[in-house]
């Protein structure tokens, strides 16, 4: 029953493809019964479906990607754990207050090598979401993540994080127990960890709630993931006093994976199978696994201090501004409008 609920979820722009696929499946059933030969027709429809999929997915808008990033059938952290790692051992609790299940942490092996894994975890149905709080952590979730980061650093394990949250939970208890401090502390500690950290936005990268496990040597984004300072709905509510204008805000905020890549926030956009990760989770995991392998390999050559320095330099350069009249080594430096900050500044 619960599997059906999620499977039945279809986005408006996916519908034509799914209708075609259903037709093909039906023809296959008929063909399998052996009564009629419809191989030619199946072939035609298959070709048509491929073409349609390509047309629809080659140029997705920001709002369509937003919908895909939140698709209830999209692979979540524990799905990637299952598909990419072996010897997974989940670790629970922040040792202070509770075990926040909106974040999962654990030890595992990636290509046989031990690593630490941290990720937001959404639920697929109401019952699961009661436990997972829709992937919106309380401070305890971040403090559990912090504990695992420190553990990983002590045992020199690379850290892989998976980001997928609408945001940190905005509620009375979360504030009372220091949501802001919990996020801030994680950002600070992550910035100086002496082990490799590779972060991947796999779905929704919801603001500070995402960044709290998002300071890496590398930050990857799946093709249809988003990473935003504010949700498009909240942005619309502030700017136009109208939550339903989220679609407009989605375009304005430039938070898709390609946009984040262009702005230097994402180091790589990891391609998803045509139709999105939810149509082929194994295919999505293969692509992500290849990317993670590549980046971990590149970071293996760096020592503990170099890893921390590399991560610092990565964030140090983020942002766009112009500057007039700054003196560097006695030379007056001026950045023109719209020119991204260059290395000459440092």
């Amino acid at each position: 029953m619960k599997a059906r609920m999620a499977k039945d979820f279809v986005l408006e722009f996916e519908r034509p493809i799914l209708e075609l696929e259903e037709k093909i499946a039906e023809l296959r059933r008929i063909a399998a019964s052996g009564k009629v030969d419809c191989s030619r027709e199946i072939e035609n429809l298959d070709r048509k479906a491929r073409k349609l999929r390509k047309e629809i997915f080659q140029d997705l808008g920001a709002w369509q990607r937003t919908q895909l990033s939140r698709h209830p059938q999209r692979p979540y952290t524990l799905d990637y754990v299952r598909m990419l790692f072996t010897d997974w051992y989940e670790l629970h609790g922040d040792r202070n207050f509770m075990d926040d299940q909106a974040i999962v942490c654990g030890l595992a092996r990636f290509d046989g090598r031990p690593v630490a894994v941290i990720g937001h975890q959404k639920g697929r149905n109401t019952k699961e979401n009661v436990v997972r709080n829709f992937g919106m952590p309380f401070p305890e979730g971040y403090r559990k993540a912090l504990r695992i980061m420190n553990l990983a650093e002590r045992y020199r394990r690379p850290i892989l994080t998976f980001i997928d949250t609408p945001g940190a939970y905005p509620g009375i208890e979360a504030e009372a127990r220091g949501q802001a401090e919990a996020i801030a502390k994680n950002i600070m500690v992550m910035s100086s960890l002496r082990v490799p950290v590779v972060c991947t936005v796999i779905g929704e990268g919801g603001s500070g709630g995402a960044l709290a496990v998002g300071v890496g040597n590398r930050v990857l984004m799946l093709e249809n993931s988003i990473y935003s300072v504010i949700s498009p709905e909240a942005c619309a509510a502030i700017l136009w006093k109208d939550q339903s204008k989220g679609e407009v805000a989605a375009g304005a905020l430039r938070y898709t994976a390609p946009d984040c890549h262009r702005l230097g926030v994402a180091d790589e956009v990891v391609p998803e199978p045509l139709g999105g990760a939810h149509r082929d989770p194994e295919g999505a995991a293969r692509e992500l696994g290849d990317a993670l392998r590549r980046h971990l390999e590149a970071l293996r050559g760096l020592g503990p201090d170099e890893l921390a320095a590399d991560r610092y330099q990565r964030v140090r350069h983020l942002g766009r501004f112009s500057e007039r009249g700054r003196r560097v080594n006695g030379v007056e430096i001026t950045f023109d409008e719209d020119e991204p900050l260059g290395d000459a500044d440092r």
């Binding site: 801030a184 950002i187 600070m188 500690v189 910035s191 100086s192 603001s207 500070g208 960044l211 998002g214 300071v215 990473y227 935003s228 300072v229 504010i230 942005c235 502030i238 700017l239 905020l253 430039r254 938070y255 946009d259 984040c260 702005l263 926030v265 991560r311 610092y312 964030v315 140090r316 983020l318 942002g319 766009r320």
Partner: peptide, 23 residues
């Protein structure tokens, strides 16, 4: 908080400033 009009780059200022503080 973060400035909406500069989008994700504003979020990254949290990381940048906090990393400098840690140093």
């Amino acid at each position: 908080g973060a400035r909406m009009q500069e989008g994700i780059l504003s979020l990254m200022q949290m990381a940048k400033s906090t990393a400098a503080l840690q140093r």
